[in-house]
Amino acid sequence: MRFRAKILDVGCLNSFTRVVNTISKLTKTCTLRLTADNLYFMLSDKVANGGVSMWCELDQGNFFDEFQMEGVASDANEIYLELVPENLSRALRTAQNAKSLKAKLTKKHCPCLTLAAELPSLSSVSRVVTHDIPVDVIPRKLWHDFREPTVPDFDVSIYLPPLKTMKNVIDRMKNLSNFLVLEANRSGQMNLKIETDLVSVSTHFRDLGNPPCDGGSQGASQDLETMAQARVDIKKLQQFLSSQQVNPSKAMCNIVDKKMVHFVWLHENASLQYFIPAMA
């Protein structure tokens, strides 16, 4: 099992940092899966913790100038590591102006992901900052826990409004209630609603547009005006929205009526999926 990679370009380093920062805001621990072509940050939370799951996929070629890996076996050329994304994010913070960043899987007192950042220096002597981030290697027999989530058979798929507007609204709603009903239909309308003993608030978005549907269960029989809805934990939703540091090039939301909400964020070189289960 080997892994070694290098980033030389500042732009790539910055965008990789942004992705890691986003992940670290979403979860305390996550699984990093390395394959020959891709990196994946994954989370599949237990139902007791809210059952949220996340799937973030990065094409290594978009970030790394060198990328060598050798998986656990020739028939399973992959590596699964469990790590604390906050550690990774903190290490990358010191590497902000680095000339190059090397990542390596090492065995110190425990398995580590070692990051070595070469910082600019005025003299000919180079300055290198090294971070050893402890990781747990996940044995092959547990890999099946981390399958790519299947895109659910959703009732409605809709493009999201500007994230800032949505975030503002949800931040206020969080002060008023613990749960929120998110509903949308296939004519571009989405509503966010809360209701408590003191107050009921509903925010209505229009003309959002629906992604072209590729079949699925949303057959022509279903009425365009019918709302699909899901009642979710506001905190999970707020956490997700505030984790976003840059506006994605595409943001959409799929709703499986009364079951779950599935968010898809598409960035130039990364994609993020987030699943929030609905509550009764």
Binding site: T165, L198, V199, V201, T203, H204, F205, R206
Partner: peptide
């Protein structure tokens, strides 16, 4: 209303 988005609140 802001930017075409409408919010309706009913406060008891």
């Amino acid at each position: 209303e802001e930017g075409g988005v409408v919010t309706v609140c009913k406060i008891n």
